[in-house]
């Protein structure tokens, strides 16, 4: 295995840890607004790390470009949708959680 392979392994495994954190957040956070973090933070970073790991193994720059496009789109959709869901819920009167 070459150095870039080791880096890929590290990135993929770190990415998987972020996905796990996202799932735990989705299941354990107390209300809708905190759970939005799982979508817009943990999973998007996890996907970014995985895409970085996969880009190191990609056979051409075109593939790297497609991978980055996919990540950009997921970020855009995640951020936009999280905002829409949150503001919709706030308007409907779903109260944020307080300790």
């Amino acid at each position: 295995m070459s150095a870039s392979d080791y880096l890929s392994v590290a990135l993929l495994i770190t990415g998987a840890v972020f996905f796990l954190a996202g799932t735990v957040g989705l299941l354990r956070f107390p209300d809708l607004y905190t759970r939005l973090h799982a979508l817009t933070k943990a999973d998007n970073v996890g996907l970014g790390l995985m895409i970085a790991g996969l880009a190191l193994q990609a056979e051409s720059w075109a593939v790297v470009g497609k991978l980055l496009l996919i990540w950009g789109l997921v970020l855009l959709a995640g951020a936009g949708v999280a905002h829409l869901i949150a503001s919709g819920a706030l308007k409907q009167g779903v109260r944020p959680w307080k300790k």
């Binding site: 996905f19 979508l39 999973d43 996890g46 995985m50 991978l67 996919i70 997921v74």
Partner: peptide, 26 residues
Amino acid sequence: PSAADRMLASQLFGTTAVAILLLLAE
């Protein structure tokens, strides 16, 4: 419990499925 929660979870599945597909593609 709310509809928004369910929607949010399904949105999360999309990101996970993207990652799975990219791994399988490789």
